[in-house]
Design a protein around this nucleic acid. Structure first.
Lengths: 196, 196
DNA sequence: GTCTATAATTTGATAGAC
DNA sequence: GTCTATCAAATTATAGAC
């Protein structure tokens, strides 16, 4: 059975996915989590901002593990990446195009107004990039190429979420999946940066 | 001299870039635009939502023209794309990493709560994709490949904005620029979709 | 077209009983 | 740990004089 703290984080995560940080009120969180405002402040004395940091940290870790699990269970890096984007597209369509990732939304909203939240989002992205970098190295990329591919991968995932969600179509995620699979399959030619 | 309506749109655009839609209040817009709340409702009777639609439409058109101007003045598609991403990185760093594009932020915030705003963002993205598609065709892509590259291009731009802004580093935009220039330079091999 | 005044509601946050 | 009651401030929006 979920603890109160977990219920609050889960409910906030889902509300952020639909409405973002500023669009979600504590009263909504209280109602959705079946916890009183007093309980929320008991677990997160810093209020909404501290709660949001916890949500970003939790989600960042969950998604990092999810990425690693998906690509690990498929043979070959190109097919692993393909499976990842295909899975994301399926989840998005099933959820009626609710944002899969609250971190990107929150980051864009508050990067200039809340430094603790910006840093939490930066840490989450950094952990994804580190994970993707390892994956790229396993696919044959050199350290420099792996850096670049990993950074671009995370950016592409976030961007494809924005587009697919707005268009209510998996097209952007599909385009990203196919192109990235190709980049991994032709890894030496794909990244021209080794001579720069 | 700028009309009151233009001042309101410009000020709102800049506030959305820093704080997003829900994080920006009408009183802030009133102060920044030096127009009273009454004037705002005079020009936008539908209130904040109608104003935001106008901001998204205006910004979408401005950026479409900007993209076309940048790639037109450089020789060769690969270098044109490189110039585009390099320019975006420079603007971002100069502006202390304020979001270059309010549309992506607003789209993510309200895609599930305001259909008029979601549709405005979708139209803006569609116009960019159409412009990029023409560019890809000019670079030698077939119609199918051009569709895919153009969609991925817009997604990559948006995603690189999220990452560069959160990381306060141009790395993501640079990675996107180099990889996209390469994709355009090797256009037949880059998009494996023609046989699918 | 611009202004002030204000209505009605909601916000994030706190205090203190239990 | 959970609850209710409440605060001060801010929110979108409207009315009506000028």
């Amino acid at each position: 059975m979920a603890t109160t703290r977990d219920r609050i984080i889960t409910a906030t995560n889902e509300l952020f996915r639909r409405q973002g940080y500023n669009g979600t009120s504590l009263s909504q969180i209280s109602e959705a989590s079946e916890a009183t405002i007093g309980s929320i402040y008991h677990f997160f004395p810093g209020g909404k901002e501290e709660l949001a940091v916890a949500v970003v940290e939790t989600t960042g870790e969950v998604y990092r593990q999810l990425f690693e699990a998906i690509v690990a269970e498929v043979e070959g890096p190109a097919d692993g990446i393909r499976a990842f984007f295909a899975g994301a597209a399926a989840v998005l369509a099933e959820s009626d195009y609710i944002d899969p990732c609250p971190i990107g939304t929150v980051a864009r909203e508050v990067a200039n107004t809340s430094e603790p939240l910006r840093l939490a989002a930066e840490r989450a992205f950094a952990s994804w990039i580190a994970s993707a970098r390892e994956f790229a190295v396993g696919a044959g990329a050199g350290p420099h190429e792996a850096d670049r591919l990993a950074t671009l991968f995370v950016a592409t995932v976030e961007g494809a979420f924005v587009l697919s969600r707005t268009q209510r179509s998996p097209a952007a995620l599909e385009a990203a999946g196919e192109t990235f699979a190709h980049l991994l399959a032709t890894i030496d030619a794909a990244v021209p940066g080794s001579h720069s």
